[in-house]
Amino acid sequence: MSTTGNARILDRGYRKFDGERLGVGSAIRSTAWHTTRSIFGLGRKARHKIFPMAILGITYLIVVIQLAIVFFFGSNDAGFLTEDSWAMVAPAIVMILFAALVAPDAIVRDQKDGMYSLYMSTPLTKPTYLAAKTLSVAGSILLITFGPALLYLLGKTIKGLGPDGIGAWFETFGRLLLACLLVSLFLCAFGLAFSCFTNRRAIASIVVLLAYVGTNIPSWILYEETNIGKNILLINPIETAYEFGARLCNAESIVNEYSAISTSMVTLGFFAWLIATCSIITFIYRNREAI
């Protein structure tokens, strides 16, 4: 601060911020990125990385091995690269495990460690906060839905086994992307809805898993032991979402029994579940105290 001819002492104290403040968009982006880092355990101890990274690794490994066999050993006829790309989306049990891991990490942690109150004291509001969390969770899930499927599609294309013509290719690609997006959003909503009741992460994970088990087992018992019929399978949300994705991609059903259900029923089931889970989230957060 004080200056003479050849000496000066500078004030290293507090600096005012004169630049322009960024808006809510930037706040959402920062929060989503921060949450995603936390989900994958980046910047945290190694043990937090194991589960998410393992699931991520396994889903990609399956596709990478198939592609490697085809490309390095040239075994086009070995039955590889003949499936629809949709089939490469990770199986339901893996997805639900991932959702049960990721969704509580994204929102329950904030309740427990006070971040939710702090976020509410920033330009974020409840809707923008949830938007940031959805961006992060659905985005993370998209990594293990769309990622492997896209790799597989590219592999097929390079080997000339993909859709014929640019138009058809882009249609396939577009359908795949849309299906993955919607299914990821669905899983995100499902995970968030069943983990927002509690502020204990372990409990939240369990509730998400139980919500899955509690719909999955009865749907199969009812389907197999009774004469109600195939539509009862739609009470299983995750398989319904997968079937909806398959219909969007014009792909084969991953679980055979679902193929007999009409597309309109599948669509109805999908959106009924989506709306129900979103309503739960809205209801819980509307009544949640910010401070």
Partner: peptide, 10 residues
């Protein structure tokens, strides 16, 4: 619910 359904339909 399940008991009821199974009882009637099994």
């Amino acid at each position: 619910l399940l008991g009821w359904v199974i009882g009637r339909q099994s």
